[in-house]
Amino acid sequence: MGKKITLSVIKADVGGFVGHSSVHPELLETARGVLAGSPLLIDFHVTHVGDDINLIMTHENGKDNGSIHQLAWDTFLSCTGVAKKLKLYGAGQDLLSDAFSGNVKGMGPGVAELEFEERGSEPVIVFMADKTEPGAWNLPLYKMFADPFNTIGLVIDPKMHKGFLFEIRDLIENKKVTFSCPEELYDMLVFIGATGRYVVKSVFQKETNEIVATSSTQRLNLMAGRYVGKDDPVLLVRCQSGFPAVGEALEPFANPHLVSGWMRGSHSGPLMPVPVAMSNPTRFDGPPRVAALGFQLCGGKLLGPQDFFADPSYDLARQKANEIANYIRRMGPFEPHRLHLNEMEYTTLPDVSKRLKDRFEKLRLS
């Protein structure tokens, strides 16, 4: 048995440039400097999507490793110091504590980690989203691993034909359940269609129980008890050789679906696939963006990235996303553009409800 590699992607918004649209180059350079000085890592890549810094790291320390999480925390703290010096907006907003407690989970940053033995060829995709929440991955993951109209390998690849296991998290009651697909597909859809509460955490190959994909499921407002922005999740997907091909993993984003987030984290909008250079959401602080970086792993080294959505074949998806954005923006503060009331509890809604509660009169039943 060979040595296992851990791919850790940890992200945080520690200051926007300008507003919530992007990351100042000095923050990215600061992050690279901190990671370059660490003996813990085999390799790393620092990038961003919108105003979120994404630390992509490989090492041999396993998932939930305190030293790796401490390194990420220290990196974000260093970046926060620069953000404050530059008077960037929302400096340190994703860091919900002043002191590291051994693991960044529950402290603000988003985390997705895969631990596996490298295959003969190990292509991975790091999906990174801005101005949305973890439930944004539900539909793409369903398409990648359960929809034969998207992933023909489910029909014609003997290694995929038996399907996959989906681990679903209930973010409200902090529970999990695993569904075996395709036989439990309809049961699973009952839950993952409710993207604000139930999210796909991980996907496993059924026969080997090997992990194929995992996402960050942290919800900032649930951790902070107040509105602090959407969660801007990441998703890691291993490809080829019994897993979806690279093209099958990317295909769900060719048709932009509606996700929660956008302006003030309070609106529905299309998830637009973009290269990193176009991942700076400005229209109504959006529309929500997704970037996809491909790496070939070789002894833990990150060969790449290939910026997949720089491909012109996604031009029509971007055009459609803009058309959807035009349509839904005309609805302004009305649902379904504005999120349902149960998603608005950390905005002005509680204050207004409290102030006006005595003006609501009870109706008599006639």
Rank of each mutant, 00 (worst) to 15 (best):
E118A: 14
T75L: 05
T30I: 03
P25E: 11
E113R: 02
C79P: 12
I53P: 06
G50W: 06
Y89Q: 13
K85C: 07
L40H: 03
V82S: 03
D43M: 12
E26S: 15
H59I: 01
I53W: 05
P109S: 14
E117R: 13
Q70R: 14
P39G: 02
A99K: 15
A36T: 07
D98C: 10
V34L: 02
H24D: 13
G90M: 09
G50V: 09
W73Y: 13
S101G: 01
F44A: 00
L77C: 11
G108H: 05
G102M: 04
S101N: 02
L27M: 14
L86R: 15
E29D: 09
L28S: 08
L96R: 09
E26K: 15
N61K: 14
I56R: 01
H24F: 12
G50T: 01
Q70H: 07
T47I: 07
V104D: 03
E113V: 03
Q93E: 12
N103K: 02
G106Q: 03
I125K: 06
P123I: 08
L88A: 04
F44H: 15
H24Y: 11
K63F: 00
R32G: 10
L41W: 05
E118P: 14
N65H: 09
L55E: 01
L96W: 11
R119I: 01
K105I: 09
